[in-house]
Measured scan of single mutants.
Amino acid sequence: AFSSEQLARLKREFNENRYLTERRRQQLSSELGLNEAQIKIWFQNKRA
């Protein structure tokens, strides 16, 4: 489960760009304390 802070950040990123570069995913992973797979799957689900 994502914290409300993490979700807000993911939604902001998604609004700016529906697709993440690998580098951006790595940055978000480290900033949010999530693993890259969690972020990747969140974006895939959000696009679906």
Rank of each mutant, 00 (worst) to 15 (best):
N35R: 08
F2P: 04
W42A: 02
L34D: 00
G33V: 03
E16S: 07
N45H: 11
R9G: 07
E22F: 09
E31T: 04
Q26P: 01
W42G: 00
K40E: 15
S4G: 10
N15L: 11
F43L: 02
A1D: 12
I39H: 00
R25M: 15
K46T: 14
S3T: 15
F43N: 00
L34W: 02
A1M: 13
R18K: 11
E13D: 03
E31N: 03
A48W: 08
K40Q: 15
Q38P: 01
E5G: 07
R24D: 05
K40S: 15
R23E: 14
F2Q: 03
N35C: 07
F14W: 11
N45E: 14
N17A: 04
E36W: 05
E22K: 15
R18W: 09
N15C: 12
N17V: 04
L28K: 01
S30L: 15
E31S: 05
L10A: 01
S4I: 12
F2G: 02
Q27Y: 08
Q38F: 11
R25I: 15
F43Q: 00
E5Y: 10
A48T: 08
K11S: 14
L20K: 01
S4V: 13
S30V: 14
K11E: 15
L34E: 00
Q6L: 05
L32E: 00
E16W: 07
K46Q: 15
E5V: 08
Q6N: 05
L28Q: 00
L32G: 00
S3Y: 03
Q26G: 06
Q6I: 11
N17T: 06
L28V: 03
A37K: 10
E16L: 11
R9F: 06
Y19K: 06
S3L: 04
G33A: 05
Y19L: 07
E5A: 12
L32P: 00
K46N: 11
R23G: 11
R18N: 10
I39V: 09
I39E: 00
K46A: 15
Q44D: 14
K46V: 09
G33W: 03
A8Q: 09
Q38V: 14
F43D: 01
N15A: 14
S3C: 05
R12W: 10
F43G: 00
